[in-house]
Write a protein that binds this DNA or RNA. Sequence first.
DNA 1: CATATTTATGCTCTAATTGAGTATAAATAT
DNA 2: ATATTTATACTCAATTAGAGCATAAATATG
Lengths: 334, 334
Amino acid sequence: MNDTNSVVIDLGAVIVAVTDGRPLTLARQGPAIDAAEARSIARGFDIAGDALPSGAFDPTRHRTLELGLRETVSRRIGVNLGYVEQLYTFGDRGRHPREREGGPRVISVGYLALTRETQMPVPESTAWRQWYDYFPWEDWREGRPPMIDRLILPLLKEWIAAPKSPAERARRQDRATICFPEDNGGWDEEIVLERFELLYEAGLAAEAQRDGAATFALDGQAVPPPGTPMMSDHRRILATAMGRLRAKLKYRPVVFELMPESFTLLQLQRTVEAILGSNLHKQNFRRLVENSGLVESTGEIEPQTRGRPAAKFRFRREVLRERLAAGVRISGSR
Amino acid sequence: MNDTNSVVIDLGAVIVAVTDGRPLTLARQGPAIDAAEARSIARGFDIAGDALPSGAFDPTRHRTLELGLRETVSRRIGVNLGYVEQLYTFGDRGRHPREREGGPRVISVGYLALTRETQMPVPESTAWRQWYDYFPWEDWREGRPPMIDRLILPLLKEWIAAPKSPAERARRQDRATICFPEDNGGWDEEIVLERFELLYEAGLAAEAQRDGAATFALDGQAVPPPGTPMMSDHRRILATAMGRLRAKLKYRPVVFELMPESFTLLQLQRTVEAILGSNLHKQNFRRLVENSGLVESTGEIEPQTRGRPAAKFRFRREVLRERLAAGVRISGSR
DNA sequence: CATATTTATGCTCTAATTGAGTATAAATAT
DNA sequence: ATATTTATACTCAATTAGAGCATAAATATG
């Protein structure tokens, strides 16, 4: 281990909130703001993409990576995070603009943070962006997104057919079928990252073109790749966060980190649906939540509703101490 | 981001195999130590304990972290890994010996690899070690390990009572109850890391003493901390691997990476039990596995057994392509 | 050889959970 | 007044989980 092995660590945070059924993440919008990044964009090495809140890990000041992340976010966004969980560490060469400038290798450590939008006054440079702006194929609440059949599958078909080796074609076909099955029943909402990696490799992500892939066309027409791109490998980190949260929801009571102090069961359901990207059976959702022991009635009643007013509930924080609580089990609908 | 932010990455692998119901990990053996020796080593900066196969990430040669890990293991152990999965990235200050000598900050990226012992001729410097040498409280196959009640709970009780603040005492009590419940029903086999972190913080891990904690005594007698210690934060990485594998077993068909080409259902069950550290109901296990579609009969019959000879099965590798297959669901026993 | 022991395998029974409805209640909108 | 909307209660069938009983097919033992 000597100096030639040294790298710098970039700590990135997917800061999640869900407001009125919109799943949100905090992002610095548009073209990168700093000089080095601006130069690389000018040379055509980068595309303008949103960026997750991130900052360098400073080994002299930070005792742990998580503390480093908290400090970075607190300094840059001005908010102290509550629930934080490490996601994944990416170190692929050639995904970071500074690296392409001849700078040191950048290793990205991604984190997931859960908050409430209203609790977080954010600086002007950042804004709450909807998850599904970046991953439009992941939102099935209005049914199967038409872009899957109209755009993604036709282009994947070309990608599958491209290699000479039949074995490689079969591998590509298998991956495509698992990630984007023809029938809705086979859709697995948790493999968000696998799907994005597939699109990236197939050249259907703007980042892949930035990183050197060819542009693509459908019916002879150049098509913009689906979803808003992000800087560096931030869209991978966001995909990891979405997949992790979709999975975790089901076995740990993490949704409540996203809820206000008291809420109706429909508000809770809409939050879960926003994260999962699919709709649930209302009566069964109620049954599961009520029987889980995770919530208790506050006695209040939600005013200002259209139909019958709903009872309000609160999360029983005690369960976190009593036992290792399970999450919100779900049973789908639609 | 400048030079002062640079760190080095240590890639560590938990290489797992299960042979005859013994869950194994590959380790470079540390100096054998008794309790007194442990204390003197702890005062110095030296390595005390076994080490996982590991090596520095070389950003000039390695395109991704995982490729770096594969290359390191292949070079040092002489084996090409199959199934590999990233676990977690630890960056805590003060856990790495070289760092304490004034070297650069070391960030550990841990990986889990699944193999078969017989496939892996290993160099003399390393050996297969049983998981439960490092974590004796995690093996419940012979019932609740007596050390929990004889050693761990009494010492935790002191640790819980120590702080002046009642709130801090309550927090400690809650953590202890979740990690080491009094009644067997509450035991959660997946929170291996949480349990180890608790013991570390309570000073009940030799590594904690190395890192500066006080030694401890039971009934006035100095006691060696439970479990074989490891270098740096390798025992944390191993704990992460155990927890991850115990969880993953249940929702992805990963056990088969540890099985030979053909096997009896009891062999499969023993492997699962070795990983989980608890026993399963034989008939129900058989029912689940047979109905899962994950295996098919080979037509062979296992000779040289005590009782009735068992039919042999093989893993249907096709399922990995057909669909995103679930794991071996389990129903406990004993 | 007869019998105990061991392991494999098939089957049953009950309780709990899941998935999909129907029915009714209590509010607002027209 | 009546339609519409949302909340909430309840039912029913299918599936799954947890536990155990029973029988089969081998070896071990006296």
